[in-house]
Each structure stands twice: as structure tokens, then as C-alpha cells.
């Protein structure tokens, strides 16, 4: 554990609390992509299967359980109590392409050919692309309420902090490199490029998130 990874994890945790608070406060899921939330549930379900296979630390186990439970809870909220506020026509990105792409890359370049390793690679690649339906919806409508933009910022910032963590690990742990995490992490952070720019130039200056 190092300060970059811990900060990244805490920012990831914060992003989920922000989203749940947003759903509870407004009693609406308008502006939130159900497809992105469904993809995160799939990401955690395929990656954290290893909960049953090995033990890393109490911290690691508790965080995994939290991510699984919270993503399930968010999908439940959007499917059931908040369903009336969900506008399917705005959440129109074809998510099949993302799942198929992540599956092909995971099958082509896993660390090892085993069910658990291929699913792990799939979850890493899928996570890197899972924000696309959310960003697509924000691009389509051209705006987002502030708390939604804070949510997306925290979610994007978390993986950027992980990149600092991988640099740190490279130097402190005998050139430790996980190339799958690196490639997916770079793609994931890069996808947020335009978003970060608008967030910093508008939302942090007290204006609302609006595309020019």
C-alpha cells in the first residue's frame, strides 16, 4: 500500500457515496447512465470472484465487498424505485460493443490462460471503457448537474492516482509492472480528457457543467 493507491481507493469510494447521495437527494436518476452502472457491476462481479480464492488483507476484502454491494445497490435503485426517472432514449450507447471489445482483448492478452485470469483481464479492460455510456449521454444532452459532474470527476481521478501508484511500485518493488493495468489505466484516464478540461474550467469556477 502507498499513499497514491490509498488516495485513489478513497476517491473511488467517495465517487460512489456521491452518486448514492445524488440518487437519494433528488429521488431521480436523470442524467445517470444505467448502462455505465450495469457495466461497473459486471466489472466488480468478474474481478472480485477472487474473494473466494485467496486472501490479501482485511482492507482488500472489505473494499471488494463494498464495491460489489454498492454497485448492486445502485443498479437496483435505478431499475426499481427510481425507474420512472430513467430516460432510456438518452442512454443510447450500444454497450454490446464495449463488452465484446473487452472480451476479445481479454482472450487475446491475459496474463495466463485460466478462467479467473481471463475474467480478471476482462474486468480491467471493461472498467477502462465503462464510463463511455455516461460520457456519451453527457455529450448528447450537453450538460450535467453539479453533483453528477463531481461524481464523474472522482471516478476519473481515482484511476489517474492509480497511475502514480504504478510508477511508485515500479521504483520501490523491483521494477514491478502489470502491463494490463497500465494499458487499461492509460486508456481509462485518457477517456476523461475533455471532461476534466470542462470540469476544471467551468465547474470548479462555480459554473455548471455545459458543453460549449
Amino acid at each position: 500500500m502507498n499513499i497514491f493507491r490509498l488516495s485513489g481507493d478513497l476517491l473511488h469510494l467517495a465517487s460512489i457515496f456521491i452518486l448514492i447521495a445524488r440518487l437519494h437527494q433528488t429521488k431521480s436518476c436523470a442524467g445517470i447512465s444505467l448502462k455505465t452502472q450495469y457495466l461497473y457491476l459486471l466489472v466488480f462481479a468478474t474481478r472480485y470472484l477472487d474473494l473466494f480464492l485467496g486472501f490479501v488483507s482485511v482492507y482488500n476484502t472489505l473494499m471488494k465487498i463494498f464495491f460489489l454491494a454498492s454497485s448492486g445497490y445502485i443498479v437496483y435503485l435505478m431499475y426499481s424505485p427510481l425507474k420512472a426517472s430513467y430516460d432510456k432514449s438518452l442512454d443510447s450507447f450500444r454497450v454490446e460493443y464495449i463488452i465484446a471489445f473487452a472480451a476479445v482483448v481479454a482472450l487475446a492478452f491475459p496474463h495466463k490462460y485460466s478462467v479467473v485470469e481471463v475474467l480478471w483481464s476482462f474486468s480491467i479492460y471493461l472498467e477502462s471503457l465503462a464510463i463511455i455510456p455516461q460520457l456519451f449521454q453527457m455529450t448528447r444532452t450537453g450538460e450535467a448537474d453539479n453533483i453528477t459532474s463531481h461524481y464523474v470527476f472522482a471516478l476519473g481521478g481515482y484511476r489517474a492516482l492509480y497511475m502514480l501508484n504504478w510508477f511508485y511500485r515500479y521504483y520501490t518493488e523491483d521494477n514491478y509492472v502489470d502491463y494490463i493495468s497500465w494499458i487499461a489505466g492509460i486508456v481509462q484516464t485518457a477517456l476523461y480528457g475533455d471532461f476534466f478540461y470542462i470540469y476544471i474550467t467551468r465547474v470548479l469556477k462555480g459554473k455548471s457543467f455545459k458543453l460549449p
Binding site: R5, D9, H12, R47, D50, G54, V56, N60, M63, K64, F67, H111, W120, Y162, N165, E173, D174, N175, Y176, V177, D178, S181
Partner: peptide, 10 residues
């Protein structure tokens, strides 16, 4: 270079 033996990150 060291290869990741296990996935210890989240």
C-alpha cells in the same frame, strides 16, 4: 522485471 504474481490491487 518482476511480474505480478497475484492481484493485490482493487
Amino acid at each position: 522485471s518482476a511480474q505480478p504474481a497475484e492481484h493485490d490491487e482493487l
